[in-house]
Design a protein around this nucleic acid. Structure first.
Lengths: 336, 336
DNA sequence: AAGCAAAATGACAGCGCTGGACATTTTGCC
DNA sequence: GGCAAAATGTCCAGCGCTGTCATTTTGCTT
């Protein structure tokens, strides 16, 4: 069962120290010996015991990915999956494995337990003033956020939410809409805060009054988008366009609008955010703000690996540029 | 930085062995001492080093979840996310953490490396005669599949695909459809094989001839469903209904049908499989075969934990019953 | 209060590996 | 052939924890 370094040493006819050298800094081993050792490992199917190695070196080849906290099922957005995939693939390519870190109500310390075994962490979503982030920060564990945090020290990769929201809103304004509903995610997420900001900036730039009753908050899900759209449509006067900050919410919004006997985009235009893979196949295909979850994940993982290896970092705060993808869920506002 | 068991022992004025006992089988420690030790741990913010513990006990509190292999991004289906969530949550509640295991072309041995550090594994998708499965099987590592495998020894939790496919097909037949397109996933997946079987059984039970040109294979994605639907619609005569074995593919199918100037369900009925969260918000809301990914994940994790702890298992092969959810993407066949 | 079994606690080795300090052997080269 | 440099080996400690077994303490009994 357990092939150890001793077995390999014996098989290759060298000392265990040499095997260890091959495993680590093979530079000090002659190519011939190294070859011999590698063959022995191959034959025996040797895999180093990562626990023992980790213990001895006081490091780990695992990075933690925090997939949300405070609730049960946070990995629900296809866009987050892309981020996870990006992180995971990049980690793997660099010899790291990924530990999923999820904090449940009943198991609140999962993050801390995990912290003991990982070389660093990626946070998949960030609430303002996140307790986990603070805890890790003071513990000295390297970490990267895939979300912006207003702290000079925080390392993050995020899409430029303010800009994304601005261009989405302005797109609607250019189509003649002035009553634009905004469906946000949780109020304490930086993405909600930033996207509200971009929305207001666009209104202001076009001299349109901000109406608080057209802005609602939910939780990124289709169900949430559905319900909040009902709320928006009940306003007087009702919005002629709705910008939901996730495609999932936008999907729910479209359905709610049609169940109200209205059409998209004939009566109400809808813009989403993310450009998840199904967005283009919706009916109508969804106009949305594209951000690449994969790219975010890849960059976050790369940044984390740099931090772990204490390599210099060009920038520790990256804002990716979002792009408006115009499809068929938006149209000029009807003459009132 | 590193609070160890020694620090706790010193603080509590006991031997490190006693602290270790509190950490494990506290039954052998007097309540008074245990209390003292716990307080010391609390004060010092002690978290046991899982690596050291794993090394000493030769076990691990981590389970691996294999999220696909052979390609880059396999965690793409919302339904799989549910499975992952179910596994992860259950693992966590039982004191286990989850390691994501992904095999890339460039890193084919990730599974083996991971095998060294996990107590067991869950496979999220199964190809027939899977090499990974065989390797683990012979290595003696406990594992559970969230997919059926035709092997008496394999432990699995899966939906009854044959039945799910049967009821979906029969639903279409009862609506008067006789030319029913079938969009499968990869041909070497048991889900494709089983669902083809259910489809044929339903045809046969209703004395409808099987036409090979109405059956196509893709990869579960919306894009795939979109493309394959184009293929199906080009057949002569074209199908009046399409059953896609994932909701993602069904989403693509609906779009393709409408781009062909046909309507759903007016001209072509569409049935999906999974009942992902957006299915009910699609336009039209999707008729589909519901299976609970979360339940699958939870059951698989529970089964694995039983295996790891060598607890008796009521059944090591579980088939969950799928349920047809009729919405608005299916309608009676038009009179020809 | 002595005596004794049971309960509680401690001392020490060892899990598989790495790191350091050094001794010894092998290599390559003039 | 001789010498420095490179390669390899030896030995020991230690990462933080647990298992085994010996030792001490406790709680009862008579």
């Amino acid at each position: 069962m357990a092939t150890t370094i001793d077995d390999v040493a014996k098989k290759a006819g060298v000392s265990i120290k040499t095997v260890s050298r091959v495993l680590n800094d093979s530079s000090k081993v002659s190519p011939k010996t190294a070859q011999k050792v590698r063959e022995a490992m191959e034959i025996l199917g040797y895999q180093p015991n990562v626990l023992a190695r980790g213990l001895a070196k006081n490091t780990s080849d695992v990075i933690g990915v925090v997939i949300g906290h405070g609730g049960d099922l946070y990995l629900s957005n296809p866009y987050l999956i892309d981020v996870l995939n990006g992180v995971s693939t990049t980690a793997l390519r660099n010899g790291y494995q990924v530990l999923l870190v999820q904090t449940l109500k009943e198991v609140p310390h999962a993050g801390l337990i995990a912290a003991k075994r990982v070389a660093g962490m990626v946070f998949m979503s960030v609430q303002v003033d996140d307790a986990n982030v603070r805890a890790l920060s003071s513990a000295g564990l390297p970490f990267v956020l895939t979300g912006r945090l207003d702290a000079e020290t925080a390392n993050f990769v995020d899409v430029d939410s303010v800009k994304g929201s601005f261009i989405a809103t302005e797109h609607l304004i250019r189509l003649g809409h002035t009553r634009i509903g905004l469906i946000l995610g949780p109020a304490n997420h930086t993405s909600s805060i930033d996207r509200l900001r971009g929305y207001r900036q666009a209104l202001e730039a076009n001299a349109i009054a901000y109406r608080a009753n057209l802005v609602v908050s939910g939780d990124f899900s289709a169900t949430s988008g559905y319900g909040l759209t009902q709320t928006l449509l009940a306003q007087h006067p009702a919005p002629t366009a709705i910008f939901a900050i996730s495609d999932l919410m936008a999907t729910g919004a479209v359905r709610a609008i049609e169940l109200n006997g209205l059409s998209v985009p004939g009566d109400v235009s809808v813009v989403g955010f993310d450009d998840i893979s199904t967005a283009q196949y919706l009916n109508p295909p969804l106009t949305t703000v594209r951000q690449s979850g994969i790219e975010k994940g890849v960059l976050a993982a790369k940044m984390l690996l740099h931090l772990i290896r204490k390599q210099p970092l060009a920038r520790n705060q990256v804002l990716l540029t979002p792009e408006l993808v115009v499809r068929e869920s938006t149209a000029p506002a009807k003459r009132q």
